[in-house]
Write a protein that binds this DNA or RNA. Structure first.
Length: 542
RNA sequence: GGCCCCAUCGUCUAGGCAGGCCUAGGACACCGGGUUUUCAACCCGGCAACAGGGGUUCGAAUCCCCUUGGGGCUACCA
C-alpha cells in the first residue's frame, strides 16, 4: 500500500513549487490506489500565519487535489497539525536522550553565530563540537533556571557513511563525518523539521516521499534518525527544482521585488494613496522601497492592483486571479520534471493519473515558462466541459469582483461560447466587460476613436448602420450579419470598414468578440443608444 | 569555503539505464505565409540543440574521466 503526503508549512499562500510537490505526491498515490495525506508542519511559531492553512486548503481544493487524511478529512493517525503532536515528539526525544543518542545544548544563538563567523572567516565549514560528556537532566534544569536556552541535539554517528537511495538519482553517498549533530528540539519546546518529519512519516505509515531536491542534503539526517529510533526508511524521490526566468529557484519573493521595481520605474507615484491602498503605513512603504522589509502578500497584491500593474504569478491564487484554469495548472505543473514518455502534452487529471510513473521523473531543473503555460490554458479552455468552464468562470468573476459576476448562467455560457480561443478567463472578462456597463459609461479608447471613427467616414457608416438596424424586425446574430454584409457590399467596402466603427461605438475599443454576436448580446436598444452617443460625442469634435 | 545535484533546439522535453533504428522527434516561443469583422484562435511552412576536451568501442547524444557552466544545501526555517 502506497502512502504519500504533502507537508506544507503554513507561512503564506501555496506557491507553485509547493503545488507541484503536492501534485506529484497526489498523482502517485492516486495512480497506485494508495493514500494521500495532508500534514501541516506548523512547528515554527514565528513564521506561521493564522490564515495560511485555510488558504493552502483552499488552493489545493481549487487545483482538485484531495486528501484522504489530514485537516478536515481526519484519519487514523491524527492530529495532522504538528503543533498538536508535541507530546508524541517529546516521548521520542526522551527516548533518544535516555539512550545517549541525543544531548542537551545550552548555546545561545549569538554564541553559535560567532562560531560560524569564525569558521567562515577561516574559510572553514562550521562544525559543531560535540561535548565529551553529555549534560544530564539536572544540568538542563540548571541552565533553564539561569535563563539559558535549552535545546536537544542529535548525536549523529560519525564513523559511518549514509547512503541515500533515491528513486530519481540512484545512490547518493555521504561520507563518515559529513553529517554533523543537528538540533531536534528547539528551545521553545517545538521539534525541528528534521525530527517531526521523521517521526510523523513513520507513524503515518508514509511509504514514498517525493520532495524538492533542496531536501536531498537533509536526507542523511533523516536516515540517521530513523536508524536511531528503529524506524523504517521510506522510498525517496528528490525532484528537480523549478527555476524562474530570472534564474534561481522560483520564489515567492519575486512578487514584492517586481512591485518595487515597477514603482521605482514609474514617473510619479502618489505614495500616500499607495500606502493607503496597501493598508500599510508610510514608514512601512518607505522601508519596503529601500529593500529593508517586505509587507505581507495581501498588501503587495492590493498595491499592485491600485497601480494597475501586473506582477508575475507565483502563488496558486495568483494564477486563479489571472484567469488560469486549475486543469491548466495541474497539467502544466505535472509536466515540469515529468512526462508520459510519448508526445502527449495536454492532459486532464485522469490521463495524468493513468500515465504517472516515478521512473519518468527527470533529474534536471526546469524553467517555468509562462508562454507555454498560457498556451496550455488556451487548450484547456477549449477542452474543459462547458459546465465546468462556466463554474470556473463564475468563480473567477466573483474573485476579481467583476460587474459580470451577477449575470445569469445562460448569458455567461454564451459569452464563453463566443470567446472560444481566448487564452485566459481574464481576457474573456475584459473583452466582454462592455456588456455590463451603462450606455453612457462606455470608456472610449482615444486611438481607437481616432483611427476608426474619425477616418474613412466611420461616423457616417455608423449612422447608416443605425438606420438599417432600426428597420430590422428579427434580431439575431445572423440577421445582424446579413445587414452589415449587405451594407459593406453596397458601399463596395470591406466588412471591416463597417464592423470596426460599430465595434468602437459599442465597446469603446477595437477589441471585442465577433461583432454580430456582440451586438446581439448587447441588445438592439443598447446598441442604437451607444451609436447615438458615439455620433454625438465624436461628431461634434470633428 | 565545504558538501551535493544537474547538463539535448531560446524554453519544456523524447532518445540515455539495456551504445548502431538519431542525417536527433514533439510541444511552446520566434520568423514567414494563409484565413479573417478586431483580438485571440486556426491552417501551412521555416529557423533552431547533443556545453567543451579526453577516453572505452568496429561504432557514443547514449558508458567512463576531467574542465566549464547552472542549481541546491551549509539555521533553535521548513
Amino acid at each position: 500500500m502506497v502512502v504519500t503526503r504533502f507537508a506544507p508549512s503554513p507561512t503564506g499562500y501555496l506557491h507553485v513549487g509547493g503545488a507541484r510537490t503536492a501534485l506529484f505526491n497526489w498523482l502517485y498515490a492516486r495512480r497506485m490506489g494508495g493514500t494521500f495525506i495532508l500534514r501541516i508542519e506548523d512547528t515554527d511559531l514565528k513564521r506561521n500565519t493564522p490564515t495560511a492553512m485555510q488558504q493552502v486548503i483552499k488552493d489545493l481544493r481549487w487545483l482538485g487535489i484531495d486528501w484522504d487524511q489530514g485537516p478536515e478529512a481526519g484519519g487514523p493517525h491524527g492530529p495532522y497539525l504538528q503543533s498538536q503532536r508535541r507530546d508524541i515528539y517529546d516521548r521520542y526525544i526522551a527516548q533518544l536522550l535516555e539512550q545517549g543518542k541525543a544531548y542537551y545544548c545550552f548555546d545561545t544563538p549569538e554564541e553559535l553565530d560567532s562560531l560560524r563567523q569564525e569558521a567562515s572567516e577561516g574559510k572553514q565549514g562550521f562544525v559543531y563540537r560535540r561535548p565529551e560528556q553529555f549534560p544530564d537532566a539536572k544540568d538542563a534544569a540548571r541552565a533553564r533556571a539561569e535563563g539559558r536556552p535549552v535545546t536537544v541535539r542529535f548525536a549523529v554517528p560519525q564513523d559511518q557513511p549514509f547512503v541515500v537511495r533515491d528513486v530519481i538519482r540512484g545512490e547518493v553517498v555521504f561520507g563518515p563525518g559529513e553529517v554533523q549533530d543537528f538540533i531536534i528540539l528547539k528551545s521553545d519546546g517545538f521539534p525541528t523539521y528534521h525530527f517531526a518529519v521523521v517521526v510523523d512519516d513513520e507513524l503515518m505509515g508514509v511509504t514514498h516521499v517525493l520532495r524538492g531536491q533542496e531536501h536531498l542534503m537533509n536526507t542523511p539526517c533523516h536516515l540517521a534518525l530513523q536508524a536511531a529510533l528503529g524506524f523504517r526508511t521510506p522510498e525517496y524521490a528528490h525532484m528537480s527544482v523549478t527555476v524562474s526566468e530570472g534564474g534561481g529557484k522560483l520564489s515567492k519573493r519575486e512578487r514584492p521585488k517586481a512591485l518595487r521595481e515597477k514603482i521605482k520605474a514609474m514617473d510619479k507615484v502618489d505614495l500616500e494613496s499607495l500606502a493607503r491602498a496597501g493598508g500599510i503605513g508610510m514608514e512601512e512603504l518607505e522601508s519596503f522601497l529601500q529593500k529593508k522589509t517586505t509587507p505581507d502578500m495581501p498588501a503587495i497584491d492590493a498595491m499592485a492592483a491600485h497601480l494597475g500593474v501586473h506582477l508575475p504569478e507565483i502563488n496558486v491564487v495568483d494564477f486563479f486571479r489571472s484567469g488560469y484554469l486549475p486543469e491548466t495548472m495541474v497539467n502544466f505543473l505535472a509536466l515540469l520534471g515529468w512526462n508520459p514518455g510519448d508526445d502527449r502534452e495536454v492532459m486532464d487529471r485522469q490521463e495524468l493519473i493513468a500515465a504517472f510513473d516515478l521512473n519518468r521523473l527527470s533529474k534536471s531543473n526546469s524553467l517555468f515558462d509562462r508562454k507555454k503555460l498560457m498556451s496550455f490554458n488556451t487548450e484547456h479552455i477549449k477542452r474543459v466541459a462547458s459546465t465546468d468552464l462556466l463554474g470556473h468562470y463564475r468563480a473567477f468573476l466573483a474573485e476579481i469582483g467583476s460587474p459580470a459576476a451577477g449575470a445569469q448562467d445562460k448569458r455567461l455560457a454564451r459569452i464563453l461560447e463566443i470567446c472560444l480561443g481566448a487564452r485566459t478567463l481574464e481576457e474573456i472578462e475584459q473583452k466582454t466587460r462592455f456588456l455590463f456597463v451603462d450606455n453612457d459609461k462606455v470608456d472610449y479608447d482615444k486611438t481607437a476613436v481616432d483611427k476608426v471613427l474619425l477616418q474613412h467616414d466611420g461616423l457616417g457608416v455608423l449612422t447608416e448602420v443605425a438606420d438599417l438596424f432600426r428597420s430590422l424586425d428579427e434580431i439575431t446574430a445572423a440577421s445582424i450579419e446579413e445587414v452589415l454584409r449587405g451594407l459593406a457590399d453596397r458601399k463596395q467596402i470591406g466588412l471591416g470598414k463597417v464592423a470596426q466603427p460599430l465595434r468602437v461605438a459599442i465597446c469603446g475599443t477595437t477589441i471585442s468578440p465577433p461583432i454580430f454576436d456582440s451586438v446581439d448580446m448587447l441588445g438592439m436598444d443598447n446598441t442604437l443608444a451607444r451609436i447615438r452617443i458615439a455620433v454625438e460625442k465624436f461628431g461634434r469634435t470633428n
